Simulated scan of single mutants.
Amino acid sequence: MWGRKRRSLRNPRRRSAIAIAIAIAIAIANRDDASDEAAAQQVYEADGIFMTGGDQKRLIALTAAPASTRRCIAPCASAAPASGTSAGASVMSEHMLFDGSRDILPQKSLVHLAAGLGFVRRVVIDQHFSERQRLGRLLAIVAQHPYLLGAGIDEYTALVIEPSHGIEIIGEGAVTLINGCEMLSNYLDAADKESLELFNVTLHLLPAGAHYRHDGGRTGASASRDDVGARPIPKTLVDLIGAVTATPDSGAQGRFQGAAS
């Protein structure tokens, strides 16, 4: 885990401020490290959080339960950017995908969920999506839990979520969004490891450069620099993006960025 702090230095000659970003690595090798109050305080005071990749089961096992870590991560994420790469992106979800079949077709009982950090509600994030042909396992999760939305992020691509406002795709690939709220399937009747029948699944493909906001990118009378290029959300995406950008704290103004490396 990394924390980032900023400091401004004043140049008396130029009368300007120079922003300096300082990256702080927080090494968590065991449960005692995750419970360390000093490390938790660094996370709390950071301007941004970055979760490393690796094994999402291990990341959650080390960081999710200790009270000091959770107490400091939660309020920080509501006010500062929280991001993750690869497995670090998956742990951002409230429902975390941590294992699954490598088969191209969706199959029953071969994909599993666990509790994640909960920065993103109702969305299951998968990474290395197109490159590792993971559409099948994300469809399997949506078939098992139609209430959840699937988000598959390609490599060298990021899904930027602005709570209560909108989303943006940056990088080189695309993000695949799967909505199974109106889906019909044979999941309950299928045998374990059997390929599933799925009907009426909605799939959206958003390439890099896609940028949607509830207000069409305008804040008040003018658009900010971050809103440049943002478009109003199409009717077919209103409910979906509303669910993706929902947060437990309606007052949260931070940004979450999930990236797959």
Rank of each mutant, 00 (worst) to 15 (best):
T245S: 02
T245L: 11
A223Q: 04
D249S: 06
Q253N: 04
T247N: 10
G220E: 12
S222R: 03
P234E: 12
A243P: 03
L240C: 13
D226G: 08
R225Q: 15
D227N: 08
D239Y: 01
P232L: 00
D226I: 03
L237Q: 07
G242Q: 05
P248W: 01
D226E: 12
G229W: 04
A243M: 03
A223V: 13
G220Y: 08
S222L: 02
R218P: 14
R218W: 02
R231H: 05
G254T: 05
R255F: 09
Q253T: 15
L237Y: 02
G220C: 03
R225L: 12
A221W: 04
P234H: 07
A221I: 15
A223P: 11
G220N: 02
K235D: 09
S224H: 06
S224D: 12
I233C: 01
F256N: 05
A221G: 09
G216H: 13
G254C: 02
Q257W: 08
R255D: 03
K235Y: 06
G242V: 08
I241Q: 03
D226P: 14
A252K: 00
R231Q: 10
F256S: 07
T247P: 00
S222Q: 09
F256T: 06
P232R: 14
S224V: 14
S222P: 14
G229F: 08
S250D: 03
R225C: 09
K235F: 06
G251A: 13
S222A: 06
G242E: 06
Q257N: 13
G242H: 01
D227Q: 05
G229N: 09
D215W: 01
L237M: 05
P248C: 12
T247E: 10
G254K: 00
F256A: 11
S250I: 15
Q257P: 13
A243L: 11
G242K: 00
S250M: 08
G254M: 14
P232V: 09
G220Q: 04
A243W: 08
G216F: 09
T245Y: 01
T236E: 14
G217A: 10
A252F: 01
D215R: 00
Q253I: 06
A246K: 04
A246Q: 14
A252Q: 06
S250H: 04
A221V: 10
T247V: 04
L240I: 05
A221C: 08
P234L: 04
G251N: 10
R255Q: 05
